[in-house]
């Protein structure tokens, strides 16, 4: 029983991390129709920027996280505005561009920081004990930030002009433009929000997991998994699916070991993609 609860708790904190990652990814797909292969790159970049701020500049960790968010958001904004925006309607071209950016980011980090993983530890140590159950404090913090980020993103999308403008552009670009909405102004902002979220995740999670130039690949795979499961482009779906993925992973590693859990999830995702691209929840999504 204790083992069961422990696994569930691990699953929930994994789910929180995955949700943070998946939100940005699904946002870009939902609004711009772009599959962002550089998502894992921004995650790594967030981690390294936060690490550098703490290790070289001596900034307190929370401030370092903010710097990481700002840096990744700024890079995302520039990339969208100057490169992606020119070809935003060509799905293969945008995919290749984000892939190219990912290779550049990861090689850049490799060149600057070397191939070894960094000594980057989460500053809040210790755990909450409740009888035989314990929850590391760092996981609680990540969970709290994740829930706050989901709430903030929801508010931006559904309660502000920017959000309305973005959703209008996603629904019908032509009509939205005829109404005076300017993709050149709004799309870079959406991209920056998404990459900022990836940077936030990196800054928060790499101290818990690990920080090395290879950590972007699995991040991308997990984002795919989560976002397809939740229905590409759907925010609520992605958030929910993230917790499903986290919990499945936690339980399968506790009870089965190995990668059976991941295999099952990927097969499920394959079938979903083919037979029900709207995901588990059946949200409407944009056409490819």
């Amino acid at each position: 029983m204790d083992q069961f609860i422990q696994a569930a708790l691990i699953g929930i904190s994994l789910g929180a991390q995955y949700a943070l990652l998946a939100l940005g990814f699904t946002l870009i797909f939902g609004i711009l129709g772009v599959v962002n292969f550089s998502h894992g790159g921004f995650y790594m970049l967030g981690g390294y920027v936060a690490y550098s701020c703490v290790a070289f500049l001596g900034l307190p960790y929370p401030l370092a996280v903010l710097v990481a968010v700002a840096a990744t958001a700024a890079l995302g904004w520039v990339f969208e505005l100057f490169l992606l925006e020119r070809l935003v309607d060509d799905h293969l071209a945008t995919l290749m561009l984000t892939l190219g950016l990912y290779l550049v980011i990861s090689t850049g980090l490799l060149t600057v920081f070397g191939p070894l993983s960094m000594e980057f530890a989460f500053p809040a140590k210790g755990a909450l004990h409740m009888g035989p159950i314990y929850v590391p404090r760092e996981n609680l913090i990540v969970l709290a930030v994740c829930l706050a980020a989901i709430a903030a993103l929801w508010l931006v999308l559904y309660r502000t002009d920017l959000g309305r403008g973005l959703r209008a552009l996603a629904d019908d670009r032509t009509v939205a433009m005829a109404q005076g909405l300017r993709p050149k102004l709004l799309f870079p902002l959406a991209f920056a929000i998404a990459t900022g979220l990836a940077g936030l995740t990196g800054a928060l999670v790499t101290p818990i997991l690990s920080l090395s130039p290879g950590v972007g690949d699995p991040v991308l795979a997990t984002s795919f998994l989560t976002v397809i499961l939740g229905g590409l482009g759907s925010l609520e779906g992605a958030a929910l699916a993230a917790f499903v993925v986290g919990i499945v992973e936690a339980f399968s590693s506790v009870y089965f070991g190995g990668s059976i859990g991941a295999l099952v999830l990927f097969v499920l995702v394959l079938l979903l993609l083919v037979f029900r691209p709207t995901g588990l929840l059946g949200r409407t999504v944009r056409g490819a």
């Binding site: 599959v35 590409l232 990668s259 394959l270 083919v274």
Partner: peptide, 25 residues
């Protein structure tokens, strides 16, 4: 092959992940 564009890309990505996991399993 019912999938086009972006969705086809995603499904092939998933396929290669599945194959890798299958080898380990």
């Amino acid at each position: 092959l019912r999938l086009r564009g972006t969705y086809f890309v995603l499904v092939t990505f998933v396929l290669s992940q599945i194959m890798q996991l299958l080898i380990f399993e």
